[in-house]
Amino acid sequence: MTKPADNLTDKPADNLTDNPADNLAVKPAVKPAVNLGVNLGGLQMKNPVTTASGTFGFGPEYAPYVDLNRLGAITVKGTTLEPRKGNPTPRIAETPAGILNCIGLQNPGVDHFIAEDLPYLRNYDTPVIVNIAGNSLDDYAEVTRRLSGAQGVSALEVNISCPNVKQGGMVFGTDCLMAAEVIRVVRENTKLPLIAKLSPNVTDIVEIAGRVAEAGADALALINTLLGMKIDIRTRKPFLGNTMGGLSGPAIRPVAVRMVWQTARAVRLPILGMGGIMNAEDAIEFILAGAAAVAVGTANFVNPGAAMDIIAGIEQYMKDNGVTDVNDLVGAAWK
């Protein structure tokens, strides 16, 4: 499918429209530009790069470093029905090429998000993916209803996989039937594109992916953090305030790539791939494994401009390799 390199122009990507079809149409005398636009289960993105929930706040935090208009989408911190305080500190620990966190879904609650944070995001020409979590099916249903009625929410990413909360979270995420139940309930309450975010802390990622697909998900996001732990040998006690935490960063990348590969081959839903993406090469690896889009998480902490660099790097890779449409790279490693 890839076009020869001499068909390429140096046209900047901002000349593209959001609709990949428009960008693909070869108009007479106009050489095709590089298309970065992707469709993630009904969510149209101008490029395949979003932020990983919980690593990018609600947007304004990184505005001095990132042109929010250039992101494919902004994925915000996990939101729950009631405000959550989160876990005691320390909430973060460093491990080889990774970090453990136990934030515990601290957030101001869905109503506060809609009233105070969403209006800011509406200033940008970038879709907003709201990550949601709950303790019960009723919680998920109610959060879904409130967000579906709010202006400026483009998609819901359903966290059925947070390792850092006592109830819900991973219990839902690691039990196939419960995971499917959560997705079914959210589906019943929204027409928005529904992205199911999966936990890697399972025996068979493909089985759970299949169940949530049947339950009505439009796309899958993977992976959330891997459950891990660190012990302080000085105090002889667990280091983190919540004993265990979620591992993210480059340390988990090979696991994430493998899970994206397995899931993409087995389930016919677009995938939002993440887990240790630090640069464009890493992002392209996920796309080749089958991800239609990618999310940048821990990398933001290291390089606040990481998402911008990754968008530019993907475009450069396409130009260098004669690829005119990023969609041609999706799953190219197994096609």
Binding site: G54, G57, E61, K77, R91, I92, N101, I103
Partner: peptide, 16 residues
């Protein structure tokens, strides 16, 4: 002082 991730208010690691 607290252990920090982002340093810009985005990750909620550094709370007191």
């Amino acid at each position: 002082e607290e252990y920090m991730g982002c340093g810009v208010g985005a990750c909620l690691a550094c709370v007191c």
